[in-house]
Computed example of a mutant assay.
Amino acid sequence: MDDYPLLNLFWTMMWFFIWVMWLFLLVRIVMDIFSSDDLSGWGKAGWTILVIVLPYLGVLIYLIARGGSMNQRQASRAQQQEQALQDYIRKTAGGSSEPSVAEQLEKFADLKQRGAISDDEYEKAKAKVLA
Rank of each mutant, 00 (worst) to 15 (best):
V59D: 01
Q79E: 13
G115C: 11
G43S: 08
V51N: 10
W11E: 06
F34L: 13
K124L: 04
D37K: 08
L23E: 09
Y56H: 07
I49D: 01
R28S: 14
K91M: 08
W11C: 04
R114W: 00
A84F: 02
F24I: 10
S100L: 14
W42G: 03
R66Y: 11
V129Y: 02
L9S: 05
V20Q: 09
R28I: 07
L105M: 13
D119C: 04
I64G: 02
V51Q: 09
M21H: 14
Q104L: 15
V30E: 09
G115H: 10
N8R: 13
K112Y: 08
D2M: 12
A102Q: 15
M13F: 05
K44Y: 05
G68T: 07
Y122A: 07
L6T: 12
I18N: 06
Y88C: 04
L25P: 01
V59T: 12
G94D: 10
E82P: 00
A116W: 00
L9D: 03
N71A: 12
D37Y: 08
D37P: 00
F24M: 11
A125M: 08
S35F: 07
Q83F: 06
K91F: 04
F17I: 12
G67E: 09
G95M: 06
S76Y: 03
A45D: 01
M13I: 14
S40N: 15
W11Q: 12
A109G: 02
S76M: 04
L23V: 02
A109N: 08
M70W: 04
Y62C: 02
K128V: 04
G43Q: 13
M70E: 01
S100D: 12
I33W: 03
A93R: 15
A78D: 14
S36E: 05
Q104Y: 00
S96R: 11
G46R: 13
L54E: 08
V53G: 01
G68Y: 01
Y122E: 03
Q81L: 11
K126Q: 09
P99F: 07
L26K: 09
A75G: 01
S76N: 06
M70Q: 03
L7G: 14
D87R: 09
V20H: 05
L39W: 07
G46T: 06
E121K: 07
D37I: 00
W42Q: 13
L63Q: 14
G58W: 05
W15F: 11
E121S: 02
M14P: 00
M70T: 02
G94R: 13
L130N: 06
M14L: 14
Q104S: 05
K126S: 07
E106C: 10
A102Y: 03
M21P: 00
N71C: 04
Y56M: 11
Q86K: 14
R66G: 02
S96H: 08
Q104F: 00
L63R: 13
S118M: 12
A78G: 02
Q86C: 02
W47Q: 04
Q83W: 05
Y88G: 04
A109C: 02
A116P: 00
Q74M: 11
E106K: 15
N8G: 08
W19L: 15
W22K: 09
L57N: 06
F17K: 09
S69C: 05
F34E: 11
G68D: 05
W47N: 04
I64W: 12
A93T: 14
K44L: 05
L130P: 00
E82D: 10
T12I: 10
M13N: 10
N71R: 13
F17W: 12
D110T: 10
A116T: 03
Q80Y: 11
